[in-house]
């Protein structure tokens, strides 16, 4: 699967066509406006659906039609590769390349080498009739991690904080941000794994440690955080060990939307029910917007499970009514 940005790489691929440059047939292309608009969740989703490799191609640094979109993409791909590794998939299966509109030849070469590399790695173990369920489960976890606000926020703010200026007018060194992001990704992955483990029946710290390969003390530490977040509870104590159980996040899931868009339709409807001076059509529009747009109009961050909509509604309303 290949994701090509509209301005450089897609044009580059077109040029290859105009120039009749031959390359393998294995890549299905999705045109996007900018390499930064590819949600990392989509990348993982692509792997889950069975792609052997994912190519993301954007403009060369400095050439981006949207200024720094390609750099954003670079950060996201970096995180996704790290997560793939954690899932037991080769990180090389996701590749980011810079292909400009004038590089038809290069595009062909990139496809050539990528197809060859992926070919060597062999088929995606989660594809086919007998998928590797362990890896598949971990990919689901990775998808959850990327849907989580913490990793997302860090990825999205990284450039601003590292290179431009944070709210205090300072910048934070790259090493520190990298470390933070690394830690956050790894911690959230561990936590999501634990939640997955404790979903069906209560498990002890020892069992969780055995099944995830994490040290027991680290598992204990994560249970503390998860209990605090209201996602995990102590079900009972068995032979001196508390057994933990995931608290089901019992919400109206919108099945057509991916995991990160699990939202509370009902709570949106309730929140806007009594908005003054808004007709039914507008209310419907608000609900649709909130459910379908990936980014909240107000805070420009991805909505997630815990997002509370009254803030967003206020943001939306300022555009709609005010």
């Amino acid at each position: 699967m290949g994701f090509l940005c509209n301005w450089c790489s897609y044009a580059g691929a077109d040029l290859a066509g105009v120039s009749r440059i031959q390359y393998p047939t294995n890549v299905g292309v999705v045109r996007v406006m900018c390499s930064s608009s590819i949600d990392p969740v989509i990348l993982v989703e692509t792997m889950i659906r069975g792609a052997d490799g994912v190519l993301v191609a954007g403009c060369h640094p400095g050439d981006c039609h949207y200024d720094i979109g390609n750099l954003q993409a670079e950060r996201r791909v970096k995180v996704v590769r790290r997560l793939l590794d954690r899932c037991g998939l080769e990180p090389q299966r996701i590749r980011l390349e810079w292909v400009s509109a004038s590089e038809g030849m290069r595009y062909a070469e990139v496809v050539d080498s990528f197809v060859e590399e992926v070919g060597e790695l062999g088929p995606n173990p989660v594809a086919g009739d007998e998928p590797d369920l362990d890896i598949l489960e971990r990919l689901y976890i990775a998808r959850d991690v990327l849907g989580d606000f913490r990793v997302n926020l860090l990825v999205n703010k990284e450039h601003q904080i590292e290179d431009v200026s944070n709210v205090f007018g300072d910048t934070i060194p790259k090493e520190r941000m990298d470390e933070l992001l690394d830690t956050a990704t790894s911690e959230e992955f561990s936590r999501c794994s634990l939640l997955m483990l404790a979903r069906d029946s209560p498990v002890s710290v020892q069992q969780m440690a055995d099944r995830t390969g994490l040290p027991e003390e680290e598992v204990l530490d994560h249970t503390v955080t998860l209990v605090d977040r209201g996602l995990l509870k102590v079900d009972r104590v068995d032979d001196g060990s508390p057994l933990y159980l995931t608290i089901p996040q019992d919400r109206d899931r919108i099945s057509t939307l991916p995991a990160w868009a699990r939202v509370e339709k009902r709570s949106i409807e309730l929140s806007i029910k009594n908005l003054p001076d808004v007709d039914e059509a507008t209310k419907g529009w608000i609900v649709r917007e909130l459910l379908l747009t990936l980014r909240c109009h107000n805070c420009e961050r991805r909505r997630s499970n815990a997002c509370n909509f009254s803030v967003c509604i206020r943001g939306l309303m300022s555009g709609v009514v005010g």
């Binding site: 926020l153 703010k157 904080i161 944070n166 709210v167 205090f168 107000n298 805070c299 961050r301 803030v311």
Partner: peptide, 9 residues
């Protein structure tokens, strides 16, 4: 790290 998310909340 000064990301500013608290202000939006």
């Amino acid at each position: 790290i000064g990301c500013g998310v608290c202000e939006t909340q």
